[in-house]
Design a protein around this nucleic acid. Structure first.
Lengths: 122, 122
DNA sequence: GTGCCGACTTACCTAAAGGAAAGTACTTAC
DNA sequence: GTAAGTACTTTCCTTTAGGTAAGTCGGCAC
């Protein structure tokens, strides 16, 4: 019987790594998080998002919105006014990112500080 | 006097977003986390890492290692044996990622499950 | 001195992300 | 009918991450 002590948590780590990479795949790219956060703050129409996130092109924004809708972070509401009003809003599911974002933000902040001060002393 | 109630947490969110993007910038890319995690499990030499992460090319690995060293996730130890042995090892700082990785992994896992089951019912 | 090992570099290539500019489809205002 | 607004789409281009293959450099083995 062969038992390698390293294997148990190695496998667990490999699984965990997959999940992490899954998460980063969904959240990755230049605009995913900015769009989500902008819509969490308030629902917006296409041009309003473009204005709020200065720099994003309509092509890229349209892509991102489709992708975020597929992943159920946002919904696309069509109101039959004249002319039709199309409003994007963040879903409840966007809020499941809270813990992730809190940790990432905290870590990112201390990391910037760490690198900044370690550059100074060199 | 003009006070816009939305501004206070808008600014906080914008700062927070910057930190999150900082963090993702450091951790992003195809190989950063795999390399870190591989070295956390055990220190390794160049060719050993390449073998452990099947698929990474020497060029990309060298790049990643330099980058990770700059960010102080790993150290490059040169042992004056004959021939010289060069060992990469994870620093204590790598462990500051624990919370981040825990949250990302948990979220990634439930997200995969969510998408999988929402595709099934459609 | 020729060849091999380890730890990389270098030069070149490809694919995917993202950006710029223009166009389209619909509607309402004049 | 012409102009203007909204919500995109299309085409084309640039940048960048990453990959492949080959080469380099120093030390030792023979």
């Amino acid at each position: 019987m062969i038992i390698d002590n390293n294997i148990p948590d190695k496998d667990a780590c490999a699984d965990s790594l997959k999940h992490v990479l899954d998460a980063l795949y969904v959240l990755g790219g230049k605009w995913k998080l900015p769009v989500i956060l902008s819509l969490v703050q308030s629902s917006k129409r296409f041009n309003e998002i473009q204005y709020a996130l200065s720099g994003i092109s309509p092509k890229v924004l349209a892509q991102e919105l489709k992708d975020l809708e597929l992943n159920e972070f946002i919904t696309r509401q069509v109101y039959p006014t004249t002319p039709v009003t199309i409003v994007y809003e963040a879903t409840e599911y966007s809020h499941t990112l809270k813990n992730v974002l809190r940790e990432l933000s905290a870590w990112g902040e201390q990391h910037r500080e760490k690198i900044r001060s370690s550059l100074k002393t060199k």
